[in-house]
Design a protein around this nucleic acid. Structure first.
Lengths: 221, 221, 221, 221
DNA sequence: GATGAATGAGTCTTCATTCAT
DNA sequence: AATGAATGAAGACTCATTCAT
């Protein structure tokens, strides 16, 4: 592409105009910094440096550190939610043997990626950010329960699962996954003993499915 | 409560000699403030006020805010550890039906008291306080695993439990309890739907014991 | 000086971009404050105000009060060192009568300017700032001895000066100059009697040169 | 000495009543601490510990840290003044050869003992303690000049010394001694090269006496 | 007389936020 | 749009001084 006439008036800009991408680049950088240091200890300047901009620029896109934090969590979760939805919706057919596969697919995805760190971040800061807690509760967890609830309902209808409240069962599913996530990011770094998250999650899948199946049997007359 | 006559003559003294009691009063006050605000957002002056002393007094007993935080967690956990030990050691006899009782006794004690908030605090701050993480790992969790491990081993020996690694089983036991604790302190306050921690825990106990029993059956020839 | 019309429309801006000049302005202000109050008693805010900036700005240029102090002494001495070098190196030819001129040129320059106050400051704080002492020893004194040593060696070679260790002679040269400097800044302000530093220094020059000449004569066979 | 009847009523006290000695013990301890750290950096508690008492006790004897500092300097100097006086007054007879002995006796006594450190302390803090400066000027220096002045006057009368103002000559005498004292306490600790204070002082004595003698010769017709 | 627990004013230092360029 | 110099409020920590015991 040869330079045309208008180049005379408008010399090549030193930086490429990337207005649209900038904010989400910043959010990614911010996520990394928040994960590493937590909300308070993360300095705006750290985030700016990680994003390759300067402090002032952050404030062109976000009105405050707190607003940025909320946006960070939002974006991080939203971008994962679609993956999660796809994951859940892919599964069709008989659900009982599926539960195990769901846990084994979904578990490591939470426990082994930085979703674990995000979860820890949310847990840590929810007290100071009710807005975050509310968002997480309604946008993330509610959707997850919804997706999982439909699958579970099928299983109950088919006599594969006992008739328990879905929000309770969800917590039984998530609990050991969450503890695995937390363990990996919190205690494993200071622990000399090896820690095998996948083993925990697959054992969890086995025990839980076995337990649900057993209770379902009991319910039958 | 009206002021009595002698108040006129004897205004409140600036201080009263109470060296022995002071430190643990301060730790209690500090725990409350740390739980409410997190480590960084808690101001020493807040803690001092909550303890009924002034800033300077804090520094007579603790060399720094960080040291105080570590002491807070230590004292909070140590005082619970004995309860926990007693709880575990009381149980004797056949262990399979016991597991359920253990979860149902121990679970609410973690999920419903401020142990839940402490756990959240540890999770939130462990990244910035490796010392806390290490302490918690070695003093709190290791002991719990130890106590629980002995019980579980009996069950395995008696064919009541499947032969799984005890550290893995421990996480299956704790996971849903922990999520209950976190839920109560993190999401329940912003959630309009009712949340029944005890239901979660007792369901957990039922499903887990059923699952372990089922797997134990499978193991038998 | 009355405010002009445009003042109405343009109130003083919060700041003006002056990165290049700022640091040395701050160092000058800091020198004045440190001289007046000593290191510990000088408040960063005093220095900032004297420099026409606010506290925070100081920390944009110096990482700590201590670092600033070291920079202050360094800059104050380094800028004088070149003058001193020029002064010494200008002198050529026979050195014996020169010694007197050197003292009479150099003495008042130390005793009458704020070099005197800096010397006092260094003496006062060297105990708490070994780095300052070391810097002063190696950068300031060593250079002075070096310059002076070359001149003195010529005089010894020419039989004008006795063959004494140059570091000892240096102290004989400096001693009365230093006491003059200290006297002026320490005791003269509280003394009702008049004090004539120049008289002390010129008498010193006369007596010292006479003494050295006499000893040089003695050395000759 | 056997215990007598009144012992029954007055059992041996746990501590010996030493009201009279206590203050000067504290002053000695305080001197050491002030010398080591300077006025501001010296903590009352350091002094108390060094004196074997507690903070509160200090305030039974001195109304404030500043008052204590002034008392410290006073006592330290007063106790030395008598020695100095004795030293000066011992000397009698012809004064010219004596000057050298005076310097060689008195010099090391100032330069090598903690008088050097006290001098440094006074120089350092005089700005913040005009009272100290005044005391030192009038009580210490004036007396020294007085004693020395009588000797010098004899020498002038006898044609041994040139007719110079005694306050000027005093500074020529003291200057190299002072620089030796300061050097030893300020720069020698950070200097790898050896430093021989006595050599400086004896050279000083030789050069100064030679110089004064030479000028006295010039004055003669 | 002595103690030492308690106080609180004083200071350094950090960092989110602003705004002239 | 981007920069980065400057701001100033906020908070950890120190230590001279007080005073109940």
């Amino acid at each position: 592409m040869s330079r045309t006439k208008e180049d005379e008036a408008t010399p090549a800009p030193r930086w490429r105009r990337r207005k649209a991408e900038r904010p989400s680049e910043m959010l990614e950088a911010a996520l990394a910094v928040f994960i590493e240091k937590g909300f308070t200890a993360a300095r705006i300047e750290d985030i700016a440096r990680a994003a390759g901009v300067t402090k002032g620029t952050i404030y062109l896109y976000f009105p405050s550190k707190q607003a940025m934090f909320e946006a960070v969590i939002r974006q991080a979760m939203v971008s994962r939610l679609d993956e999660a939805r796809a994951l859940f919706e892919r599964h069709e057919g008989p659900v009982a043997p599926l539960l195990r596969r769901i846990i084994e697919d979904f578990g490591p995805r939470l426990a082994m990626t930085n979703l674990a760190a995000i979860a820890r971040l949310v847990i840590a800061e929810a007290g100071n950010f009710p807005e975050i807690a509310r968002f997480y509760r309604h946008e993330v967890i509610a959707r997850g329960e919804d997706l999982f609830g439909r699958i579970y309902a099928q299983g109950v209808a088919g006599g594969e699962f006992p008739d328990l409240p879905v929000d309770v069962v969800t917590k039984l599913v998530i609990g050991p996954v969450l503890i695995t996530a937390i363990w990996r990011t919190t205690f494993a770094p200071v622990d000399e003993r090896p820690f095998d998250p996948v083993a925990v999650i697959s054992t969890h899948a086995r025990v839980l499915t076995a337990g649900l199946r057993a209770l379902a049997e009991e319910e039958k007359p």
